[in-house]
Design a protein around this nucleic acid. Structure first.
Length: 876
RNA sequence: GGGCAUUUAGCUCAGCUGGUUAGAGCGCUACCUUGACAUGGUAGAGGUCACUGGUUCGAGUCCAGUAUUGCCCA
């Protein structure tokens, strides 16, 4: 076989992905096996793959592929999210580019455009995931607005409404004046921004030249003031409480009230209370029975209540209004000020707290079992540090505003039959709604034309929170959900712990009485080299598809996982993918080597090879033991590193070098056979991380007859007892090898030149490994001696002493310096050990085992020092 | 402002219940090319474990404080 020296992923990846699909390896149906289920965090339907997806889905695929090989019925359910606000914003933008305004369209016309966009761009991201090798069950692909799913969302709404948990209410909400919709708290991003703090004085009614001064960052809301508030203990203003102040410009008389909410230190200690435009003021207003005057329209312009400013943008008004205050003598001073400003996650518009009538879901009772489940580890968080913030949020959970003033999404199934805000019914279908409305009104003549459905849609998360149930149509039928639910592992970003994870656990308990998954693995944020979050606007995110073209999907997968412990940010660097690609190439070449060996069945197995086989057998078992622990703890980076070192360092650098026959010679049958067994084990361990390359070379190692022989569905290697003593002995033998190589290196002795080794063996010297050592270091022979060897390079390991007789012209000074350095190290070591042993308290206080250990170290160090001193004397 | 984390080699990270003068990968340095792979091999250098105090026979590991960086919440 003529195989190129370099691995070319483009020749294998598409081929094997198509092969796996054809074989149906990723498709799952319920059977007798233990299920292993993962539901994908559904990406936005019109999104494209970014580095965050790459990380997230690589992790999921590693877990799923490993489970599949372990004989579980692995089911990874893919799908997409309709992403109400994000998608609608994109559609609006596209229509605007075509010169169409959303307001010129009917709801149905707009939805037509949105569906068109969805069909055009939807699913691109799923195709991209296939390039990554994601082993999803594509037959199960769901969309949060496909027919069955839509129905599930509506049913959920109706059920909670029937239980009295969904209600309508006037609340202060986060209003996005650009998207013209309410947002949940989680969709608002707070950042520090520079602004100004305006000091404005209000005349106190009935007192000559008495003023009360407030500090505000939002002077444009002054016209909506309905009180001035001071702290009840504030001596400065005590006598003013109960009096009235006059709001400048609009000349409204408002009460001066007292409340301990006020921060004495902030500004002047006086607060203007504007219940219509500030969350806290609203609560103060409720508490003190203040009127609410709304001076800002939904689109962010000033309302009729703002008098001559009507129609002016709120930020323009913020500039103009203080000018009028100054003319009137009410503006005291203006300071520069930095404060937190909330902006819409989607449109970046400054959020306007706004009173509006919205739909809410009462959360307090619902969330209790979900809090409990995480705190008692029924649902385990990885890493567990996230339990803290989860608890904090769940203990302070607020009612969920689930309505959005958008068109793209699940329309709220409420129909109004009258003009009053309470004159509505909630139903699964129009027919049901009509029936209910007739019953409620007693008017049997009511028709659909008399009903008007609520214009709003539901928050996107109100559909994705039932994802682990409804991807199996679990709200409507039991067959599949009973088998696959609860799912096993969820892999997601901590940013959406509240949006999504917490709510899935809540809905899981509500609908199925148990949590939707057992483990939640939180990935970190992918950052660039400078530590910045990767984002489209910064343009610092590489295109994953380009990366996969350059380094291969396997290379990128390895790159993503190399430095990403759970919950830690991933400082991404192309270098990591390069490392992954190099690793792929290494495996490729190791395969080439093994593949190329001719076998001579008559040839006896060399002792060195037999040793190597026994050692590699034990070493790979030991690595599998480590891997199991690492996977159990979701320490995937460590698991990858364990596999990486096992394959590269131990299998390639030590094992293959140990068994390699001399150039041009065949290998003996026993060694070749054992090597193939070991190599297949390596491929299995590698497969979850590097599926394409491993599947390719898997098919070289032996004849594969059908789909069932694919590595993708091969059985995970079985654990068995292994020879730990041999592993320890080999570690010592490796040090001997290194010692001899060092002598060659330091003295410029070529590898071809045979050397003689003389050994003064101490206790536990691994004499049976000598053939192996000799093979790796090209020795002419090993001689055991009892006397010290003169005229030789030497090194000491434990109580064993090794010498290599000098050849011609060696550097005696360099050798002496080396011995001297070693001696100093040993003397320092001895001092530290003796420091402990001479400490009365250590000897009496520390456990016997520990003291014993120190005594042994002391003895070893003394022996080594004696040898080194002797050696030094020889050299002088 | 409140809460939670972080701080160990040039970089990215391990180091579990305190007990080898601290480990890995990458990078770096030296040497090595007819031989699986230079996307490689062999070897090497590199750390007062953020700082200050404390507990202990013994602290990277526990406690307190300070500083640092980051995240979440208000």
């Amino acid at each position: 076989m003529n195989i190129p020296a370099q691995y070319d992923p483009s020749l294998t990846e598409d081929k094997w992905y198509a092969h796996w699909l054809e074989a149906g390896h990723f498709h799952s149906t319920p059977d007798d096996r233990e299920p292993y289920t993962v539901v994908i965090p559904p990406p936005n339907v019109t999104g494209v793959l970014h580095m965050g997806h790459m990380l997230n889905n690589t992790i999921q695929d590693v877990l799923v592929r490993r489970a599949r090989m372990q004989g579980k019925n692995a089911c990874w359910v893919p799908g997409t999210d309709h992403a109400s606000i994000a998608t609608e914003a994109k559609v609006v933008r596209r229509l605007r580019d075509k010169g169409i305004k959303k307001s010129d369209l009917s709801r149905d016309e707009f939805l037509g455009h949105a569906w068109e966009w969805t069909h055009e761009h939807g699913g691109i991201i799923l195709e991209q995931l296939k390039k990554l090798g994601a082993s999803c069950d594509w037959n199960r692909t769901r969309f949060t607005m496909d027919e069955g799913y839509y129905k599930g969302v509506i049913d959920t709404f109706v059920e909670f409404h029937e239980k009295g948990l969904i209600y309508r209410g006037v609340r202060m909400v986060n209003w996005d004046p650009v998207a013209l919709t309410a947002l949940s708290d989680e969709e608002v991003i707070h950042t520090e921004e520079h602004g100004k703090l305006y000091y404005v004085r209000y005349a106190v009614l009935g007192e000559e030249d008495r003023w009360i001064t407030v500090a505000t960052t939002r002077p444009e809301t002054i016209m909506g003031d309905t009180a001035i508030c001071v702290h009840p203990d504030d001596e400065r203003y005590k006598d003013l409480v109960g009096k009235k102040a006059v709001v400048p410009v609009v000349n409204r008389e408002v009460p001066i009230i007292a409340d301990d909410y006020i921060d004495l230190e902030f500004g002047t200690g006086c607060l203007k209370v504007t219940p219509a435009h500030d969350m806290n003021d609203y609560e103060l207003g409720q508490k003190h029975g203040l009127p609410t005057i709304d001076t800002i329209n939904a689109d962010g312009t000033m309302s009729a209540e703002a008098g001559s400013y009507e129609g002016m943008d709120r930020f323009e008004c913020r500039k103009k209004f203080p000018e009028e205050l100054e003319r009137l003598g009410n503006l005291v001073k203006v300071e520069d000020y930095t404060n937190k400003v909330g902006r819409s996650e989607r449109t970046n518009a400054v959020i306007e707290p706004r009173l509006s009538l919205q739909w809410f879901l009462a959360m307090e009772e619902l969330s209790k079992p979900a809090l409990e489940a995480v705190m008692n580890d029924t649902v385990q968080f990885h890493p567990p540090k996230f339990k803290n913030s989860y608890r904090h949020w769940m203990e302070n959970v607020k009612d969920w505003c689930i309505s959005r003033q958008l068109w793209w999404g699940h329309q709220i199934p409420a129909w109004f039959y009258g003009v009053g805000e309470d004159e509505y019914v909630v139903a699964r279908t129009e027919a049901e709604a009509l029936e209910q409305a007739r019953a409620k009104t007693g008017n049997a003549g009511l028709t659909m034309d008399d009903l008007r459905q609520d214009e709003d849609v539901m928050d996107t998360w109100f559909s994705s929170w039932i994802w682990p149930i409804q991807v199996f149509d679990g709200l409507h039928k039991e067959d599949e959900v009973a088998y696959y639910y609860p799912t096993n592992d969820l892999v997601t970003a901590p940013e959406i712990m509240f949006f999504w994870v917490a709510r899935m656990i809540i809905s899981g308990y509500h609908f199925r009485g148990e949590a939707p998954f057992k483990n939640v693995y939180y990935t970190g944020i992918v950052r660039d080299k400078k530590g910045r979050k990767m984002s489209k606007s910064l343009g610092n995110s590489p295109d994953p598809i380009d990366l996969m073209k350059e380094y291969g999907a396997d290379g990128v997968r390895v790159g993503m996982l190399l430095t990403s412990p759970a919950g830690n940010d991933l400082p991404f660097d192309d270098k990591l993918c390069e490392q992954g690609r190099n690793f792929a190439n290494k495996i490729w070449n190791a395969s080439r080597l093994v593949q190329g060996w001719e076998v001579d069945e008559a040839k006896a197995q060399p002792e060195a090879a037999a040793t190597a086989v026994a050692w590699m057998e034990a070493r790979s078992q030991q690595a599998m033991e480590e891997l199991d622990a690492q996977f159990a703890g979701f320490r995937l980076s460590e698991a990858l590193m364990t596999t990486y070192r096992l394959v590269w360092e131990e299998y390639c650098s030590w094992y293959l070098e140990s068994i390699k026959p001399p150039f041009g010679e065949p290998i003996d049958g026993a060694t070749k056979k054992a090597t193939l067994v070991l190599f297949e084990r390596m491929l299995k361990l590698l497969h979850p991380f590097m599926p394409f390359l491993t599947e390719e070379v898997w098919h070289w190692t032996s004849e594969r007859k059908g789909f069932e022989d694919d590595l993708c569905v091969a059985s995970w290697p079985e654990r068995s007892a292994f020879d730990r003593d041999l592993l320890d002995q080999i570690e010592l033998a490796k040090e001997i090898v290194t010692g001899i190589r060092n002598i060659r290196n330091d003295n410029g002795i070529a590898n071809k030149e045979k050397l003689e080794l003389k050994v003064q063996a101490g206790d536990g010297y691994p004499v049976h490994l000598e053939a192996w050592i000799a093979h790796l270091t090209n020795l002419s022979g090993v001689e055991h001696v009892t006397e010290k060897v003169k005229g030789a390079f030497g090194f000491v390991l434990g109580t064993h002493r090794f010498s290599v007789p000098f050849g011609d012209g060696f550097d005696i000074d360099a050798e002496r310096a080396k011995v001297q350095k070693d001696l100093e190290y040993q003397q320092g070591f001895l001092r530290s050990v003796r420091g402990k042993l001479s400490n009365e308290k250590f000897v009496s206080g520390a456990p016997e085992q520990v003291v014993e250990n120190e005594r042994k170290k002391e003895a070893d160090a003394l022996a080594k020092i004696a040898v080194l001193e002797e050696k030094l004397a020889d050299l002088s």
